[in-house]
Design a protein around this nucleic acid. Sequence first.
DNA 1: CGCGGCTTTGATGTTCATCAAGTAAAGTGG
DNA 2: CCACTTTACTTGATGAACATCAAAGCCGCG
Lengths: 231, 231
Amino acid sequence: MKPSNEISSCKTCVYRKLLFDSLTEEEYQMVNSSRKEFIYRRGEIIRREGDPIDSFLYLRSGLIKLYKTDRNGKDHILSLNKPGDFISLLSIFSNSVYKYSIAAVEETKVCDIDLVILHKVVSTNNKFALRVLNRMSKVSDDIIESQFEIRQRQVKGRIAFFLLFLTNKIYRSHEFRLPITRREIGELISMTTENTIRTLSEFKKDGIISMEGRTINILDYERIKGISNTG
Amino acid sequence: MKPSNEISSCKTCVYRKLLFDSLTEEEYQMVNSSRKEFIYRRGEIIRREGDPIDSFLYLRSGLIKLYKTDRNGKDHILSLNKPGDFISLLSIFSNSVYKYSIAAVEETKVCDIDLVILHKVVSTNNKFALRVLNRMSKVSDDIIESQFEIRQRQVKGRIAFFLLFLTNKIYRSHEFRLPITRREIGELISMTTENTIRTLSEFKKDGIISMEGRTINILDYERIKGISNTG
DNA sequence: CGCGGCTTTGATGTTCATCAAGTAAAGTGG
DNA sequence: CCACTTTACTTGATGAACATCAAAGCCGCG
């Protein structure tokens, strides 16, 4: 991790409108003066479960995973998040330590605001507080939602569901590079690496996707949708 | 569902201290005057997924389940909640409809506050707003946490985990009546009714619990803990 | 008193994890 | 930059874990 050389302007930030819009000029200056930027490379851990929470984080660019390591040392990925989603969960208002680990799965730029400053603004600006909280609660809701979708499917349905997620939510394209390894896909949708690979290979053999290493092309979108809906 | 005959006093309510403490007398009167109480019997649905959210609900007594029905009509229980937990999730600030269904699993008393009133108080009283939101976020966090615990275990570990949940979190006793059917246990910990029954029977045969219908007695707590930790 | 939901057990088959073994790719340090 | 190491990827074989199917007893309730 390294501090970003040039701090990006807030003028062009998605959050500016989304969130900081409701701040007074004075409040905004306060937030902005404490703001730091960091860049993390693929694989770097941004925060570790149990780390003290002393700042409010949000994603400027890139892609991160929220995950948790179980008693056998196996990681379980709770969600992949992109700019517009928050990294900090609601725990920043109730917990003193992170409940999940956060890692970059591609080069990622993160803004970091001192939690003391954020608390100050939140306690004086109600509109802002509600916006922040709404936004953060969406992350939790999405995790619960996707786990519900995963747990009702078997392996083929899970892979299809995951491919649709990338197609529609992350890349908005039928062609993309898988952002995570096959092992991580398994950690996200609760199956083994081997079955992840086998299922992807099967989809390829059946001609519903093409696949060269990490590059995926959705050839038969409707059929994938069908598998996701019935598998 | 029926309106409660006598409205319980707020003086003795767990939430009074937890939450309403931070209200001014005027705010409190406003909340309280809009407050209604309802009693639901075992099996009654309190809210259905998709219902409009027009009130803020909290549990006075009893036990409820949050659940969601999948595309095959199978229910998946997300959590069991008792007084002190909120029923309304964070969606009350961001969504117009419920994302989950809520049903009583035993006779349950619910307080109902008009959402317009709640919003008004929230927007003027910051301390109260944060308390409400913290409290609600705990429900989401708990769901994510328990799904994480469930998905890393196989059937015996799941049943053991569930028994520990009842013992430690719900009843604080080694002897209790199962609040839900075996089918519902399966819906909660993602396994079939048959395997739920088989596993419970096995625990009984092995002498680590006793079981007469719904009545369970934890005979060998340490062994159950062991199974939950390694199963 | 009969119907439907809950409970139980056994038999059977499918799905999936595990194990093994090898190739390919990507870091890493001299 | 190349040898070395590690991590990622892949396929096949095997067996364990678990779902499904079937059949029957039980219980509460209208």
